[in-house]
Amino acid sequence: MLRKILPREECAKCRICCSFDSYDLWETPVIPTKLASRILQDYRPEQEFIKKDDYFLFKMEKEPDIDLYYCSMLDQESGCTLGDDKPFDCKIWPFRIMALNDTRVITLSTVCPIVQKKPLEDIQAVAKELAPEIFKYADENPGSVKPYLSGYPIMVVEDKKYKDTLI
């Protein structure tokens, strides 16, 4: 989905998006019910989830002696064990869908070291290209829309009056 700005090989080496400290646990991927069932059936029957409204979050254990939580689907040797079934949040990272007041926006997580090296106009072009799919997913999965957090650069603003128009 993001190959134009994030080559698979570079992503696989980094894995910064698969770890969270206490401050950014809010960024853990939203897991729709259907995907949670598939994970339990096809990938990891012992996986525990945290129930939030009509979706789930992975239950992750804090690493000993460090404020760090790794995604439970991460294999340190081979990467994400979910392959193409990874959560939508993971598929679009470093983009995030957020709510700024009454407007949905697509933002950018600037902690991605690969994205930090890319021209902003290239990143924004990819965000605009993906926007219809991201906003459609958000329509179907409102729990995936997180409150806007100051400091996240806004790449795309959804125009409520003309949903297909991006500014």
Rank of each mutant, 00 (worst) to 15 (best):
Leu2Thr: 00
Arg3Trp: 10
Arg3Tyr: 15
Pro7Ala: 09
Glu10Phe: 11
Cys11Trp: 13
Ala12Thr: 05
Cys14Val: 08
Cys14Pro: 07
Arg15Thr: 12
Ser19Pro: 03
Tyr23Cys: 06
Asp24Cys: 15
Asp24Thr: 15
Asp24Asn: 14
Glu27Ile: 12
Glu27Gln: 09
Thr28Phe: 06
Pro29Leu: 15
Ile31His: 00
Pro32Glu: 11
Lys34Glu: 14
Ala36Thr: 05
Arg38Asn: 03
Arg38Tyr: 05
Gln41Trp: 11
Arg44Leu: 09
Arg44Tyr: 10
Glu46Leu: 15
Gln47Ile: 04
Glu48Met: 09
Glu48Pro: 02
Lys52Gly: 00
Lys52Glu: 14
Tyr55Cys: 15
Phe56Ala: 01
Phe58Lys: 05
Lys59Leu: 15
Met60Asp: 13
Met60Ile: 13
Met60Asn: 09
Glu61Trp: 00
Glu61Lys: 13
Pro64Glu: 14
Asp65Glu: 14
Asp65Phe: 14
Asp65Asn: 14
Asp67His: 13
Leu68Glu: 10
Tyr69Asn: 08
Tyr70Lys: 13
Cys71Phe: 11
Ser72Cys: 06
Met73Pro: 01
Met73Asp: 07
Glu77Asp: 04
Ser78Asp: 08
Thr81Cys: 01
Leu82Ser: 03
Leu82Asp: 07
Leu82Trp: 06
Asp85Val: 04
Asp85Met: 14
Lys86Trp: 06
Pro87Met: 07
Cys90Val: 05
Lys91His: 11
Ile92Ala: 02
Phe95Met: 01
Phe95Tyr: 14
Ile97Glu: 04
Leu100Glu: 14
Asp102Val: 12
Thr103Val: 15
Val105Pro: 00
Val105Ala: 07
Ile106Asn: 00
Leu108His: 08
Ser109Tyr: 09
Ser109Gln: 07
Val111Ser: 09
Cys112Tyr: 04
Cys112Pro: 02
Pro113Lys: 11
Ile114His: 07
Val115Gln: 05
Lys117His: 09
Asp122Ile: 03
Ala127Tyr: 02
Glu133Leu: 12
Phe135Arg: 01
Tyr137Gln: 06
Tyr137Val: 06
Ala138Ser: 10
Asp139Gln: 04
Asn141Met: 09
Pro142Ile: 09
Gly143Gln: 14
Ser144Asp: 07
Ser144Tyr: 03
Val145Lys: 11
Lys146Leu: 10
Pro147Ile: 11
Tyr152Asp: 03
Tyr152Ala: 03
Tyr152Pro: 01
Pro153Thr: 05
Pro153Asn: 00
Ile154His: 04
Ile154Gln: 01
Met155Ala: 00
Val157Pro: 00
Asp159Asn: 15
Lys161Trp: 12
Tyr162Pro: 02
Tyr162Ser: 05
Tyr162Glu: 12
Lys163Met: 08
Asp164Met: 00
Asp164Val: 08
Thr165Val: 11
Leu166Trp: 12
